[in-house]
Design a protein around this nucleic acid. Structure first.
Lengths: 165, 165
DNA sequence: TCATGGTTGAGAACAGATCTCAGCCCTGAC
DNA sequence: GTCAGGGCTGAGATCTGTTCTCAACCATGA
């Protein structure tokens, strides 16, 4: 939040209540939010902010490299705060929509190596792996059952976050 | 093309002239085409095909796994034929828009490892690396000059195709 | 040749994203 | 605190990619 404030100051742009509220909502949620999600979230909090403003503020946040733009092929974009976080990628469950973030330095290395071989300099990347999460695999195996699993997940080590449902 | 024919036959779907023409255009171009690109291409060839039909046929091709859907964040989708090809990814030049395809088995391995650690089964992935191609880097260094470079590119080894501009 | 059912195409509909513009408000100066 | 001015805001129009609708058409198999 302070980073956003100083970015705006640095760019000689005013810090308005709307900008503060939008960044705050994105920051506090920690999820990948669409513009509609954000609008709903703000409405629930009693803040009325126009969609145009949400789009404008999000693109500011992206410019400031405080937020990342995501496209999971849903027909619209999602945004997530990425301030200070390590570069991460996403695993997306094609059945329930769950999104699991992960950090894997080997991806950075591989990307750098590939780009160097082809003469490119890297500015960014988007890696999304689509598949079935553990729960959905289990649900497919035995159509009716209670919730379970999720125990061995800590052992993984690469995971840094998870949201959705 | 034969693969598409047999897919349609297998699904008991008729092979129409439009379907043939659309698949042929995508196949012959070898590039990542948008629906508009395809419509233009077909118009140039004197074939009139409605957009709805192009969308429908493309989604058939994707279903048949003969085409892949790409999203480079341009606000629309692109499609490319992928029949029989190894799974590949893309490097995209953020300056000139050039798209370079590459095959790198290490990406498959990494993806499988990550998914396994997080309990996912893999169905697919999308890896796009954004950066500056050699020509655009050169153009930035010395704003005015003729075309050059592209020589050392063969040495790379991972590259399998390149289109765009 | 014929019946049938899926396909086609024009245009409407839909939805995400962007633009417009009059009025508002943040900022910096005083 | 007050003020001027420039940038911001929001409602709604607009744009654009994609999907839907439906009557006419046509590929297919008998």
């Amino acid at each position: 939040m302070d980073l956003f404030r100083s970015y705006l100051h640095q760019q000689r742009l005013p810090l308005t209540r709307q900008r503060e509220v939008i960044a705050m909502a994105l920051f506090e949620s920690g999820e990948q939010l669409s513009v509609d999600d954000l609008a709903d979230l703000l409405r629930e909090r009693g803040e009325h902010v126009g969609k145009a403003t949400i789009y404008r503020t999000l693109s500011l946040l992206v410019q400031a490299e405080l937020a990342g733009e995501l496209n999971f092929g849903e027909g619209f974009k999602r945004y997530e705060l990425q301030a200070g976080e390590a570069r991460h990628d996403h695993l997306i469950c094609t059945s329930c929509g769950r999104v699991t973030r992960f950090v894997q330095p080997a991806v950075d290395e591989l990307q750098a190596q590939i780009a160097a071989e082809l003469g490119y300099t890297v500015q960014g990347r988007r890696l999304e792996i689509f598949g079935l999460c553990r729960e959905c695999q289990a649900a497919l195996r035995q159509p009716r059952s209670g919730g379970d699993a999720s125990a061995a997940e800590e052992a993984a080590g690469v995971e840094i976050g998870e949201e959705g449902g």
